[in-house]
Amino acid sequence: MEIIEILFGILAFLAIFSALMVVVSKNPVHSVLWLIVTFFAISGHYILLNAQFLAIVNIIVYAGAIMVLFLFVIMLINLNRETAPQKNRWLKMAGGVAGGCLLLVLVAAFKEVGMAEKQKAVVNVGDIGLIKSLGKELFTKYLVPFEISSVLFLSAMVGAVVIGKKE
């Protein structure tokens, strides 16, 4: 048992457990906090895969910006009086069964394909995840999509302001 496998196990367990807690917990604020834990676990996986740029961006963008936005909205919306979403037990059961069936089908299909018994996602070798090589790729090969995404951001900003405006 190498140290990397132990780390992978711990991070995978943390990610799955906190993802379950996101779905299970009653209080939306707790859900947000568990989701932040999930994002940190996934960032740990990125670091393990030597994708350091994406790990940092994941923490900054998701755990830093998007989750703070969620918390703002939850505190803006007064959920305390709890207009208690009615609990339909059959609906919940059906959702759980449907999700379980999806999991079963995906895993079974993957087993059937039987691809990549020997394929590995190498952890320590290769520097494609570093800022230097990713930046070079981003600003040469993917320059046009990068600029288009800036236009997308601008339109999203305008859209959010227009939607959120009081008439």
């Binding site: 799955i16 996101v22 939850i74 999700g99 895993v107 993957f110 018994e117 590995k120």
Partner: peptide, 29 residues
């Protein structure tokens, strides 16, 4: 690490997300 484990982990996380969308009634969640 074998790629199998990553595929399994991602599938499990995705299915947890699907179950959450199907069962919860709160739009934010």
């Amino acid at each position: 690490m074998p790629i199998n484990l990553y595929i399994l982990l991602a599938v499990v996380l995705f299915c947890i997300g699907v179950v959450g969308v199907l069962t919860r009634r709160n739009a934010i969640i």
